[in-house]
Amino acid sequence: MTAEDTVAGVTARAVDGDGRISITLQVNGREQRIQVRPHHTLLEVLRNELGLTGPREGCGVGMCGACTVLVDGRPVSGCLLPAALAEGHELTTIEGLEGPNGELHPIQQAFVDHTGFQCSYCTPGFILTSKALLAEQPDASRDEARAYLAGNLCRCGSYVKILDSVMDAKERLKG
């Protein structure tokens, strides 16, 4: 660690010789302590430091949703959030959805049963966003789902099957 960096009485986060700070993230229910540079995005850190490759880089500018991460249950673009600012929040990636014995989450199973994907690059983002949608609006209509998911892009064009999956997942979650 280098000397303390204090400006106007406020101390900057301590950096190592590589300019990295030590942060603690809550990812999929586990506490993870890692070294990151302050400009590293949550997406980069999840993939490169934690090996969680569910969040993917698509556009890199917050428009496509392939990098969606749930932050305290709310979908956020991992490509637009510095990892250091995600401290203190509950983070969920697609890897955090499966049950204790590896069984798929009902939304995942609905996507499988309806083939709500083709190449699947966008799928983790769609499933996580659907999870937030159905938590917020358990009775979401197809149009409401369409509006909520408008910021998730599928270049294969599987939208019809994706909406089929979400509407079925809604019923499954109600039991």
């Binding site: 400006v7 106007a8 510095p82």
Partner: peptide, 28 residues
């Protein structure tokens, strides 16, 4: 260059850092 990250806990602290660092600092 490595970024320095300040996480002040009051507006006064944040403003003091900005006053000292000038345009080199960005609020986030």
């Amino acid at each position: 260059e490595p970024l320095r990250l300040f996480q002040p806990t009051s507006i006064e602290e944040a403003v003091a850092v900005l006053a000292e660092l000038g345009d080199d600092a960005k609020v986030v």
